[in-house]
């Protein structure tokens, strides 16, 4: 069985698993990192959203062998470390607005929010209603409006 190597939340990992197993299952079932949630396995619901080299991606739709040894994968568990703090400003905003209900979608929502803010900043602007409209993450509890408020708030701290 091949050994897969990459950096996960700042630490190197090596795991024996077949090449075609999607990264989400390597994280959850092999490495016990359960922050990224399964909601579809189809790159649709976005509840597994994590970061690869700082950009949002959906590990349910990436074979583990596509992850290079030099790639840095960050899940919700490692997000705060990327800013050297106990909580990322986006997580702080989530707490302040009291966004979560069941919480199942929220790790993915937060990871998507951070990437979205970085994306629009890279384009030299701030987040707009149109940007928020394009966020695809499902929240079946319907927390969408507080998510919008929290992203704007979290962006202020980023």
């Amino acid at each position: 069985m091949p050994t897969q190597k990459f950096t996960l939340n700042g630490k190197p990992v090596a795991v024996d698993v077949e090449d075609d197993v999607r990264l989400l299952w390597v994280l959850r079932d092999k490495l016990g990192v359960t922050g990224p949630k399964y909601g579809c396995g189809l790159n649709v619901c976005k509840s597994c959203t994590s970061h690869i080299n700082g950009k949002a991606f959906n590990p349910c739709s990436v074979p583990v062998s596509d992850i290079k040894a030099t790639d840095e994968v960050t899940t919700i568990e490692g997000l705060a470390d990327t800013v050297g703090s106990t909580l990322h400003p986006m997580q702080e905003a989530w707490l302040e607005i009291d966004v979560a209900q069941c919480g199942y979608c929220q790790p993915g929502q937060i990871m998507a929010a951070v990437a979205k803010v970085k994306q629009v900043r890279a384009a030299g602007r701030e987040i707009t209603d149109a940007d928020l409209d394009e966020i695809r993450n499902i929240c079946r509890c319907g927390t969408y409006h507080r998510i919008r408020e929290a992203i704007v708030k979290g962006a202020e701290g980023m």
Binding site: R28, G32, T34, G35, P36, K37, Y38, T75, I76, E77, A80, L87, Q91, W94, L95, D98, A100, Q101, G103, Y104, Q106, P107, I110
Partner: peptide, 20 residues
């Protein structure tokens, strides 16, 4: 605010699928 909010935003809240 929700008492489980911190666990939720840090990915620690454990659902059935997350239990070992």
């Amino acid at each position: 605010k929700r008492i489980d909010a911190h666990d939720i935003v840090t990915g620690k809240k454990t659902f059935a699928m997350d239990m070992s």
